[in-house]
Computed example of a mutant assay.
Amino acid sequence: MRRLTGFRGAGPGAGYRGGLIAICAVLLCCVEVTPAPSQPPSAHAFDRGEPITPIPAAPAADPLKVALGEKLFGDRRVSHDNSRACQSCHDIATNGASQKRHDVGLNGAELALNTLTVFNSTLSFRFGWEGKFRTLEADIEASLQSQHTMGSSAAEVAAKLDADPDMRDRFVAAYGRRPEGADVVDALASFQRTLVTPGSRFDRWLKGDDAALLAGELDGYRLFKSLGCSACHQGVNVGGNLFERHGIFHPLASPEPRILRVPSLRNVATTAPYFHDGSAPTLDDAVRKMALAQLNATLTDQQVKALVAFLNSLTGTYRGAPVGGSP
């Protein structure tokens, strides 16, 4: 999740679950599925045989390029009118996104879709709610060019930065030349690949720390698997590697887009509001609505409490601090 779509709730009875499996099979035949980026599971995760694997450390990268990319991430010159930076909507000091239902575009109008978190985004196999972009670099270029977000281009940004002696020197140090459009994109991508959040209590449990999860959280995880949630939300990013149709039994949120990339549930407790239209204000509300919309099932308060407890255990750390300041 940022945002919860494709989450599986439960229906009573083996017959109902059999019907759900058939529905999932039909859906998966209608969408393109590409394997998520391979991540070597830890020995403990493999021994447990779980469908989720721990987040690995950020990949090795040139520190000069990463530092430059971080500086660019917070630089308003990446937008045509110098009014906004990547950080404006993707706040890495909190949840990697924003607290708004819809962020505002360059023209002052609300953006059509809720902002996804940038944390762990590089662990998913596609980018954006609709998965239009196959690479991080393509996603960055599209964001720079979009008239709704930055209204600029990598070449325009490079030209602005070339007029700044300090930034020019940084590019020369990192790339051996003055700023170029491709280097702007590469620097931003280098930084974004470091935005992974390992160290959640759930990951510690996966690695063999049996005391990392409370009994209620472990119950929630067992329920998460038994209800079928892990059929869509699995792998290192607890989602992010297939597409689904939402609102199978009842409307879930805004009807368009009908097919969405199943979002990651990493740090989901920090990324309210939920869904592609931001219409669910709390995690409790999102879990209940998902069960009804996707399964025609009404979860008990106890089931919801257990699932939310498990989802809270997916909050990782960034630079030594919990994402969003959560416990």
Rank of each mutant, 00 (worst) to 15 (best):
R266L: 15
D277Q: 03
R2Q: 11
S152W: 06
T298E: 08
L265I: 09
A67T: 14
K65L: 15
R177L: 10
D284W: 02
R193H: 02
P51A: 06
S152M: 05
P255H: 07
L28K: 10
Q294S: 10
D75A: 09
G228E: 04
M150Y: 02
N296A: 12
G131N: 08
R266M: 12
A163N: 00
A57Y: 13
A67F: 07
P281R: 14
A291P: 03
L299H: 06
Y221S: 02
H246S: 05
P51F: 09
V78R: 06
R201G: 02
K160S: 07
A211S: 13
L113N: 04
S226E: 13
G240N: 00
D103Y: 03
E217A: 00
G325Y: 03
G235M: 03
V66W: 13
L214K: 14
G247M: 01
R101A: 08
L311Q: 13
V104W: 12
V184W: 04
A309L: 01
L20Y: 11
L116Q: 11
V157Y: 05
Q145S: 09
D203K: 06
K225F: 10
D209E: 00
N241E: 03
V33D: 08
R84T: 11
G216T: 13
H80G: 14
I248G: 01
K65V: 03
K305W: 08
H233A: 03
S254E: 11
T300N: 01
I140Y: 09
H233W: 10
H276Q: 04
A286T: 06
P51I: 07
G11M: 14
S121V: 14
L20K: 12
F310C: 02
L72Y: 05
T135Y: 10
R319Y: 04
V78W: 05
P263S: 11
G131Y: 07
G216M: 08
P40E: 15
L292V: 06
I23N: 15
Q192M: 13
L64Q: 15
T115C: 10
D210C: 03
A174L: 02
P37I: 01
S326Q: 10
R17N: 08
I248H: 05
A60N: 13
G208S: 06
R2M: 11
R245W: 14
